[in-house]
């Protein structure tokens, strides 16, 4: 089946109040073209699940699309804190549930395995257990050991970005895989953007790097630079200069409005043009 579609087609398939799992990790291989389209849409009351979030979560909070965030981490790594996330946390303008890196994976895995929860020792002895109402302390039914029950996380939609895909929805990830496979398997519908669409014959040459299996994907969008400003190794590195601009813009209302006009309220082609076009990006970001 040919599953090619446009960015807008993907957004049309996401209902209000949907729960969306986003792949990638902080400033690496985030499906940013899809996230930007979501940010400029009129969707409301979304729940976002991320293991390690970055500009994806921050942008969706900055444009008011999100009601609830489930996360282990949200930050800009070497560049510091995520400005809208920080503000929203401090002013409690959205609902936040602090999970941890493995427990987000375990929650997705529980959905995949069709069980209500997964047990772990992680978060015992920490305040995460105290502030996260989703977790429950339990006893091992065989012994008496204390454990934490991590409930299943069931996303309606997963959004991921990969290096290559074929029209059937198989996807190749060449750099670090992060939690994209778990997101893709756990979601009811997975939409994948890719740097380039290859023939299925070409794609199969990548062997074990074909990590996203077509039985899990509902849609494929060819979007070169679709992870920008996050990196997509080995195609391009993270655009730290742009992320610095983002951080600066987020400091004031005026700055943020200008940023939105230039980089969010525009389609992907215009977005690239506003960066000086693909040639300019190649010179700055190809390695």
């Amino acid at each position: 089946m040919d599953k090619r579609m446009s960015i807008d087609d993907v957004i049309d398939r996401i209902p209000d109040s949907a729960t969306i799992a986003i792949g990638g990790s902080s400033i690496s291989r985030k499906p940013m073209a899809l996230v930007r389209a979501l940010a400029r849409s009129d969707k409301r009351d979304l729940t976002v699940i991320v293991d390690v979030g970055g500009p994806d979560v921050d942008l969706l909070l900055g444009t008011g699309r999100v009601k609830r965030i489930i996360y282990a981490f949200v930050g800009f790594e070497v560049l510091g804190l995520a400005p809208h996330f920080r503000r929203a946390r401090q002013e409690a303008t959205a609902e936040f549930q602090e999970w941890t890196e493995y427990t987000v994976m375990a929650g997705l895995d529980a959905t995949i395995k069709r069980v209500p929860f997964m047990p772990t020792h992680a978060t015992l002895g920490t305040d995460v257990l105290a502030v996260n109402p989703a977790f429950k302390e339990i006893r091992d039914p065989f012994g008496q050991e204390p454990l934490v029950a991590v409930p299943a996380l069931a996303p309606d939609v997963a959004l991921i970005h990969v290096n290559y895909a074929d029209v059937q929805g198989n996807g190749v990830i060449l750099g670090d895989g992060h939690v994209d496979v778990l997101c893709a398997k756990a979601a009811k519908a997975t939409y994948m953007s890719c740097e380039r669409i290859l023939s299925s014959e070409e794609l199969q040459r990548f062997g074990r790097d074909v990590q996203i299996l077509r039985v899990y994907s509902k849609g494929v969008v060819e979007v070169p630079w679709g992870a920008h400003p996050t990196g997509c190794a080995p195609d391009y590195r993270t655009d730290l200069r742009h992320l610095q601009e983002y951080l600066k813009a987020a400091q004031s209302e005026d700055g943020w409005r200008r940023y939105e006009t230039e980089f969010v309220q525009v389609d992907h082609r215009q977005y690239l043009e506003n960066h000086g076009g693909p040639e300019e990006l190649v010179s700055r970001l190809k390695v």
């Binding site: 981490f73 930050g75 995520a82 920080r86 890196e101 493995y102 020792h121």
Partner: peptide, 21 residues
């Protein structure tokens, strides 16, 4: 306080896993 932090940092990431295993 977590519920109304003076400064929200990043979130616990994988530290709970490290400090229980």
């Amino acid at each position: 306080d977590w519920h109304r932090p003076k400064v929200a940092l990043v979130g616990s990431r994988g530290i709970p896993e490290d400090t229980s295993h």
